[in-house]
Simulated scan of single mutants.
Amino acid sequence: MTQTPRPITRTTGMTAPREFTGGPRHIAIIMDGNGRWATQRRRPRLFGHHAGARRVREVVEACPELGVKYLTIFAFSTENWKRTQVEVAGLMSLFRRYIMKEMQAFVKENVRVRFIGDRPRLDAKLRGLMDEAEALTAHCTGTNLTIALNYGGRDEVARATQRLAQDVAAGRLDPADVNEETLPRYLDTHVLPDPDLVIRTSGEARISNFLLWQSAYAEYEFVDTLWPDFSKDELRRLVEAYGGRERRFGAVPV
């Protein structure tokens, strides 16, 4: 039987927003559909990516009211290098401009920014901006925004395993101590809690190599909305639906 979702406290008049306490603490989003959104409007795919970047701001701003402390977004995967050179170059330019444009806004809004993924393949200017954004917002205590850039779940686990193996070889880690609690300390997300809810937009029902280890017990929502059309109202609806789910983590109800 479907459970009735817990209600979200809404605001009226001049009342200050109240946090929704029954929802997920950490939401991860696969932001899919930018290209299709642009194609529907007979515009270049990069037009859709720019629209999608603007949508991120609205979602980040909605997090505090919904009680979401951590937001992780999938911006560019290790597989996205297979796209046309024009699109890849356009995306890299968009990422640079986005970070430069939003950096001060993140500080003003108390948003802490982190990046996960394999950085060496990214150009030096982009890497520098990523480092600057992380350093500039390190003191922020509000929403934790993590941007997955040149990220792949399998690649992350492989890199983590390499670092773990190096520690074993150097005698810093006993092989007998390697377990499912040890490996996460070597992942890109080692300072973050695992996601409670993973959302994918655009109607595709696959996880596309995103947070494979971390989302083992996450709830999933696949929505038809293309990312540039995804709104804070739809996010609120998904948070509300999450509040009605029973999460057992392999156990049975008592």
Rank of each mutant, 00 (worst) to 15 (best):
T2K: 15
T4D: 11
T4W: 01
P7T: 02
P7M: 06
T9R: 10
T12R: 07
T15M: 14
P17A: 07
R18G: 10
E19R: 15
T21H: 09
T21D: 12
G22M: 10
G23I: 10
G23D: 00
H26T: 12
G33E: 08
G35W: 13
G35F: 08
A38Q: 02
F47T: 09
G48D: 11
H50L: 14
G52M: 03
R54W: 13
R54E: 14
E58K: 15
V60S: 04
A62R: 15
A62L: 13
C63Y: 03
C63S: 03
C63L: 09
C63W: 01
E65V: 00
L66D: 02
K69F: 10
K69T: 13
Y70G: 08
T78P: 13
E79T: 09
N80V: 03
N80D: 10
W81I: 12
K82E: 04
K82P: 01
R83F: 04
R83N: 14
R83Q: 04
V86S: 15
V88M: 00
G90Q: 02
G90Y: 04
M92H: 06
L94H: 09
L94E: 06
R96K: 14
R97W: 11
R97F: 13
Y98A: 01
I99A: 06
K101W: 13
M103F: 05
Q104S: 15
K108R: 15
N110Y: 05
V111Q: 00
V113D: 00
V113K: 09
R114F: 11
I116G: 04
R121W: 14
R121K: 15
L122F: 05
D123R: 09
A124Q: 11
K125Y: 14
R127L: 14
G128N: 12
L129P: 03
M130S: 07
E132G: 07
E132M: 09
L136T: 15
A138G: 08
H139K: 11
C140S: 14
G142I: 04
T143Q: 03
N144F: 01
N144S: 13
L145C: 06
T146Q: 09
A148I: 10
R154D: 05
R154V: 14
V157I: 15
A160C: 05
A160E: 11
A165N: 05
D167P: 07
L173P: 12
D174V: 01
A176Q: 15
D177R: 10
V178H: 05
P184G: 01
R185C: 13
L187N: 07
D188W: 03
H190Q: 15
H190V: 14
H190E: 08
V191C: 13
L192N: 01
P193D: 11
P193Q: 10
D194A: 10
P195E: 01
D196F: 15
D196R: 04
V198T: 07
V198K: 02
V198Q: 00
T201F: 00
T201K: 03
S202M: 07
S202V: 00
E204T: 09
I207F: 09
L211K: 08
L212E: 08
L212A: 12
W213G: 12
Q214G: 06
S215G: 13
Y217N: 14
F222I: 00
L226R: 04
L226K: 08
D229Q: 07
D229I: 01
F230C: 03
F230H: 02
S231N: 05
K232Q: 14
D233R: 04
L235C: 04
R236Y: 05
V239C: 07
V239E: 01
E240M: 14
A241N: 09
Y242S: 09
G244T: 03
E246M: 12
F249N: 07
A251K: 11
P253S: 12
